[in-house]
Nucleic acid binder design. Structure first.
Length: 327
DNA sequence: TCTTACGTAAGA
DNA sequence: TCTTACGTAAGA
């Protein structure tokens, strides 16, 4: 640090200044002291104070100001903030350090989206700590701040109680949350709140739609995000249920129900804990259709698909692509 | 009825 | 070859 300070003396910028050297310590002397780092502490402090006062009084722009401004320039070409219509931001996450960044941006006055963007890493696998309320309320991560017993109590959502009612299931039970509760967010995803009042579109819609895309993309895998999966799956389901002998083929997840849209295992349900021997998918990711006996669920799937397609159309123009990780 | 565990299909 | 997870049988 000392070296950089030395190089950034007011003199190097060639402007006049009202800097008044302390008696017995003119500026050249201070330059010398810069070269010789083992000077007494008070002299150094005095020198730094004089620099600070110089820039503080507005005698000259801070030498690094231009550089800082350049570094802080948004990387997005659009003049509007990337999520200007929404209160939430969805991101994959990487290191815990990002959480610090998130909290700062959420709580602080500085809520510009570009600041998030530049610091945003890619996603990280399962079971990362979620410090926000979302973690405790919407997703039952084993590392959340909810205690183990309470966590298990929350997990005791009987699939039958809400499952056959309309594609809700455990995921549907979580939709009641008013914060980000429009959709149950897996722990691999960060929702960044910008605190400005949204211009109409609800967070719930945004997150739901975003996950719709993610789920569709993930489910289709190599088939691109054409969104034809649900109908395809419906066909598969219908075929498998109607074709008799071929019904032995494994059914596939519908990809559009709430559990299917959940991307990350909870890590605490019996299926997750029993993964080695149970060979079962997380209970909160178990497809609503697969929970049912093989039967005709074609129109249900088609209906869901239609709605999801509408969501995708609504947001496709303003939701950038991001990276989702499934464990 | 629910849970657990195993066989194995399917995809990466 | 490895991983994921569906189907199903057995046990609680």
């Amino acid at each position: 640090m000392s070296s950089s300070v030395c190089m950034e003396t007011p003199h190097t910028h060639g402007h006049a200044h009202s800097y008044t050297p302390t008696t017995g310590r003119d500026f050249s002397l201070q330059m010398d002291s810069c070269m010789n780092p083992v000077l007494d502490y008070s002299a150094q402090m005095e020198r730094y104070r004089s620099f600070a006062n110089f820039y503080k009084n507005g005698a000259a722009p801070f030498p690094q100001a231009a550089k800082i401004a350049r570094l802080a320039t948004p990387i997005f070409p659009s003049p509007m903030t990337p999520w200007s219509c929404d209160n939430g931001m969805l991101w994959g996450r990487k290191p815990p350090a990002v959480n610090v960044n998130v909290n700062v941006n959420v709580n602080g006055a500085h809520a510009h989206a570009h600041a998030h963007r530049t610091a945003m890493p890619r996603a990280e696998p399962l079971n990362v700590h979620m410090p926000s309320k979302m973690s405790a309320d919407n997703f039952l991560s084993p590392l959340s701040q909810v205690g183990g017993a309470e966590c298990m109590n929350r997990l005791k959502v009987p699939p039958q109680s809400s499952g056959s009612g309309g594609g809700g299931g455990a995921g549907e039970a979580e939709r009641g949350g008013a914060t980000f509760g429009g959709f149950a967010l897996p722990p691999g995803v960060i929702v960044m709140t910008t605190l400005h009042s949204g211009a109409g579109s609800s967070v719930a819609t945004m997150t739901d739609s975003a996950f719709q895309i993610a789920a569709d993309c993930q489910h289709s895998n190599s088939a691109s995000c054409s969104g034809s999966n649900a109908s395809t799956n419906a066909t598969v389901s219908a075929n498998s249920s109607c074709s008799g002998g071929a019904a032995k083929r494994k059914r596939k997840r519908c990809g559009v129900c709430a559990p299917c849209r959940r991307l990350i295992n909870c890590g605490v349900c019996s299926s997750c804990r029993n993964r080695k021997t149970g060979h079962q998918i997380c209970k909160f990711r178990k497809c609503e259709e697969l929970k049912k006996k093989p039967g005709s669920t074609v129109e249900v799937n088609t209906h869901i698909y239609t709605n999801s397609h509408i969501h995708m159309n609504n947001i496709s123009s303003r939701v950038p692509f991001w990276s989702f990780h499934t464990k």
